[in-house]
Every structure is written in C-alpha cells, then in structure tokens.
Design a protein around this nucleic acid. Structure first.
Lengths: 349, 349
DNA sequence: TTGAAAGCGCTAACAG
DNA sequence: CTGTTAGCGCTTTCAA
C-alpha cells in the first residue's frame, strides 16, 4: 500500500474521496506505459502474460476501475441498451424486464427502461432521446409503424419483441400455434362461436392473434367475430365484456389477460356466470391470472426467456461488424393453461 | 479552420451514417468557436442572445446532439442514477419504478434499474458494479445493513425508499399510522387477537410495521403475535397461512399483499373461510388485491409518488454542492382500503 | 511485446 | 461576450 501524496486532491475533510485511480496511476505504479495498461485490460492476448498479471495485480491493489464514459468516448459503443415497453404496470412485462435485465447484466451492458404508454409518439420520442445514449434498442410490443422502425434501424442495432419486421431480429412468443390451441380447446368443449376482444390496432401481436384465431376457427367450423379495439387494460374490461355478451358468442377471447380480468369483473357484476354462461380466455398468463375469479384459462409463454433472448440477440448484433448477417427470428413456444374460466358451451338459447 | 474533408467517414454505402456532428462541425458552420457552441448549449446566459440563437439554429439544422459520454468525462457527473429494488415481479414496485422513471426523464437523467432478489449480497454487488456508471442511487426497500449504506453514501448521493437511515434522505409510506388504521379497523370489528406474518428480518419496513402494529394493539387491548419470518411472496402463503391459523388469532396481518394473497389461496384450500372464520389484511394494495378472493383489505399508499419523490430528492441532492444540507425525510400518507377479507370476528371457539 | 503520442467530444480556465 | 488552450481517461495507431 504505497500511498502516494496527492495533497491537492486529498483534502480529508471533504465527503468525497480524493479521486478514482486512472490508468496513469496504474501505469506509474506498475512501471509500464498507459497503453500497456489499457491493453492488459481490454486486449489481454496482445500483452505478455507476466506483464499483464503484474498490471492486473497493481490495478486490483489500487482499486482501479475503468471509467465507462471515458472508454466509450473514443470507440462509439456505450455498452448501454434501452428496453422500451408500452406499459410498465402490466405484469406481463415483468418477466420481460427481468429477463432483459439479467441477460444484460450477464453480458456486462446496462439496460435502461422506458415506458411508452401505448403511444407511438411517445415511443418515437423516447427512442430519439435515448439513441445518443445507447448502442441499441429492444422494442417490446412496439406500436410504431414499420417505416419508423426501419429508419431507427439504419442508425442503431435493434431487436423486436413480439413483433416481426423485415430485415430485423425478433423474438416472438408463438401467437399462431397458441391461438390454435385456444380454438381447439374451445371447440372440444362444444363452443361454436367465439368473439375476439381486440387490443390496439397498432399491435402487431394483436393482429397476428386475430388472424390465427379466425383461421383456426374457420378450419374447425366455428364462427369468429372481432370486436373492439379496446385498451389492453383492466379498465377496458367493462366495455369489452358488454360487447362480448352482446355479440352472442359463447366464448370470449381477450387480447390479453389484463383485459380478460377486467371482463371477468364486469361479467360478475352483471350476473353473467363464467364459465357456465360464457367462457373467457386470455393471453399471457400474467400474475393474477391464477387467482382471479374464476381463475383464467390463458395462453402462457416463457416471457422471461423472451426478454433474455431479445437482449441476447441485441448483444450478438452489437458485436457483429456486419449488419444484415446477424438478423435472426426466434419463436418461443406457448401453451394453454386451462383453469376455471372455460367449460362446456351453454346450450343455445 | 475551414471545412476539412473527412472522405473516410463519408462513405455513403455503409448502413451507418457518416458520423454524428460534433461541436466542431457546429462551430465551423456557425462561424464561432467550439467553446461558444458549448456555452450556447450548456450555459445559455453567458452568451449573446443573438449568437446563441444562431448557434442553436445551426445545431438544429445539422442534427447535432451532445455526446453524453464525452460530456460526462470531464465533469464527474454522468446524469444517470440507479434504482435498486428487491423484486421486479412484485407489482408493488411497478408504481415506484414508473414514478422513478417519469421523474428521472423529466429531470433529464436516465435511470437504470437493478433487481436485488431480496439478497443483501446481490444488492451490494449491484451497487459496486453500478457506482462507476451513476451519480447516485435510490435504494428501495434495501436489505443491506446500515453500515454498508453509510459507506456507499460516502462516495455517492443516495436516497432511501421505505427505509430511514441516519443522515440520509428518505421517502417512506407511513407505516406507523397505517398500522394503527389496520388495528383500529380490526378492533372495531371485535377482534381481540391478531397475528403478524412477518417478512424478511432485514426489512426495515417490516420491523417498523410490526412495532406500530403491536403498539397499536397494546393500546387498544388486543393481543398481537409475530410469526415468521416468511419470504414476502405468494409462494410463502401456505406456510404463513398455516402458522396464522395455528396461532389461534382471529385476524391475520401479512407483511405484504403478495404474502396475503398466497395465504388466501391456502386458506381456501384448507376450507378456512375468509372473512367468516378469519380476517386477512395486507400491505401495499397491489395489482390483484382487488380481484383475489375474497378481495383483500389492505393498506394503500401513493407508490408512484413515492418513486417520483425519491428521484426528485436525489436530483436535488445531485445539484447541491453541500452534502448534508440536502437531506430530507419525506413521509407519505397511507390509507386503509377495506374490502371483503375482513369482517366481524368469529365467536370464540 | 511495448511505448510515445495523437486524438475521441466536450468543458472550463484564462485572456482578450 | 467570445476565442484560445488545456485537459478529462481511455483507445489506438505507429514505431521501436
């Protein structure tokens, strides 16, 4: 502990400590040049093993840690990525956020989170603001038109979550097979008609779900109607429930669990019994889907894994020199969790 | 200093654009020096209004945006703060995260989120890792011993959320008055005994809740027992419910709603009727507390505001030269939301 | 394998 | 009020 004097920096009465050690301190202390220190830290293979070991020892002793800002200034990378989600309070995104965060910290990059409040405008504004701070984006359930996304992608690495865009990497929890599972389940219970309570028109996933739902319905001989759009939130449950009941369908499939839970509440209020009079199905299997009443039949997927995978793809892309080479489309499986909100269809009135 | 060529940067065939404009570009284009540009952007009052307007126009036209890394390298501040929470998937923290994020982006600083998984070790590791990237921390429901926190505080600005520590700023949703409200409610229903299903021993808030609960119980002539500790999660519900029932208390107060909801599920399984046989109360009023069965009586508070306030205090501290002068303790009010999980005490067996 | 030296983009004295 | 001139801490040629 050689303890040099830095009289000007060491004014002990300050709360802040003297100064963080820099590569200059390490270099001096280790008797090498700053570039050697830099290399020992970043490009280990290009330094004599013994030298490197020595440098690392000294760095360790001094408590040296590279300043990420200084590091990123020369080279363009900030080692930071942004995750944009429409609604932080939707439990659906917890898993994604957690997975994203974990993968990011495993990869040594920091993740910043932004909430777009289901607004394409706000999403764009956030992206604009963040793009100077981050190397890339994960856009979860993006509501922005394809053109804007393509534009963003020209200057930044970017991975889509729950949406596919030409030429970009994406991670999607299978909406097609999942929707088929829902329809098959309902068909097997004797339902002949279903209504889909749609989410935002700007939702790629919503469009996809409806498409798969109606295709499956057709092939199984059910009728399917699409109602809405509704905000994908509990608050829209009443409107959706009323519309669903009004449609005469015996099975109601909601855009997501938030909406389904809101519908359940409304149906209870109106005295419509679930599942005896009408069956209800959601998507996502969020927190709460297992303890609402009745517990909700819903399509589950590995959301945390989705978040992790998205960040993983982004990190991979960040490390690639060549842009187009790294685009990959990942589809994660989904499975129907059958609970008490679905049952045999009520006999036709 | 006239219009240099950067032919190597302008290769238009690359996907990435030539190069982001710097203050040098703006300066040249505007016919002023770089420092004038810098000042026009950061310290507007120290530049002639006309000059400034001109510089801003040019900057705008060039699409100039300051590089935050370069900016932070000289001056120590990174314009970034970290928010540490024990459990991202606890809906309780949504509000905090949302509030924190909003306040941060309003203040022009970026917030990074980290999950400590209820582990003091992990919390410390995250703090260690992040402290080179951020100017300050908001520690929500920190599980770390006071000493460590004080140590961290020596080098970084820091605000506690749901915990008070000597010499530090904090924001707390009132646990004392809230607990009193709970006990009064139970007393008014004729309960004479309650059990508190405790959370982690490292939880400051948990300790505080228990203290207030038992004080209020004593002054109202109820007996109060503390059971546990339990993990503050749905998964610990069965253990807590069983312990609570075993205690013979007619009212069970859980450390938080997650635990309470888990208990409700277990009680239903065991055929113990709520609220007829036993009343259940939670803390936090999280998502789901209103639609579990029965809907949960719980202590609500303005969580989003708490998150916002915490970041606000941090920002204020960041701007203060003088450390100790900026410490403030904020207590936010809480109020009991009475739902269907509490009712008149069952007659003594 | 190593060192010297030139930046990276911005801020901050210090003159003028 | 504005320009000159040093750096901030690190990476990266380019020589040696």
């Amino acid at each position: 502990m050689v303890a040099e004097e830095h009289p000007d920096r060491t004014s002990g009465n300050s709360v802040l400590p003297p100064r963080r050690p820099t590569i200059y301190d390490v270099a001096r202390e280790a008797g090498v040049s700053t570039s050697t220190v830099s290399r020992a830290l970043s490009r280990p293979e290009r330094v004599n093993a013994a030298t490197r070991a020595h440098v690392l020892t000294v760095a360790e002793r001094l408590g040296y840690a590279a300043d990420p800002a200084a590091r990123s200034i020369g080279a363009g990378r900030t080692k930071t990525a942004a995750l944009l989600v429409p609604d932080i309070t939707n439990p659906y995104f917890f898993g994604i956020i957690r997975g994203g965060n974990r993968e990011a910290s495993a990869a040594g990059i920091t993740l910043v989170l932004a909430e777009t409040e289901e607004s394409p405008d706000l999403e764009i504004r956030h992206a604009e603001r963040l793009k100077q701070n981050v190397d890339g984006f994960v856009l979860a359930s993006s509501r922005v038109p394809d053109e804007h996304i393509q534009a963003l992608a020209e200057h930044h690495k970017l991975v889509m979550l729950n949406r596919e865009v030409d030429g970009l990497s994406s991670v999607v929890v299978d909406p097609d097979d999942g929707s088929r599972q829902i329809v098959e389940h309902l068909a097997s219970l004797g339902h002949r008609s279903l209504a889909y309570l749609a989410g935002p028109l700007t939702s790629w996933l919503g469009a996809r779900r409806w498409r798969a739902l109606s295709a499956a319905a057709q092939s199984l001989g059910l009728t399917a109607r699409r109602l809405g759009p509704f905000q994908p939130a509990v608050i829209s449950g009443p409107a959706a429930a009323d519309a669903g009941v009004g449609s005469g369908a015996t099975a109601l499939v909601a855009h997501n669990d938030l909406l389904a839970i809101g519908m359940l509440q409304r149906l209870a209020e109106r005295g419509v019994r679930v599942p005896e009079q009408v069956s209800v199905v959601g998507y996502d299997d969020i927190f709460g889907a297992d303890f609402c009443s009745p517990p909700l039949t819903t399509l589950a997927g590995a959301h945390e894994k989705a978040g992790r995978t998205a960040v993983d793809l982004l990190v991979a892309a960040l490390e690639t020199r060549d842009a187009a080479a790294s685009v990959r489309r990942v589809t994660l499986p989904s499975h129907l969790v059958i609970r008490a909100s679905t049952a045999a269809a009520a006999p036709r009135a």
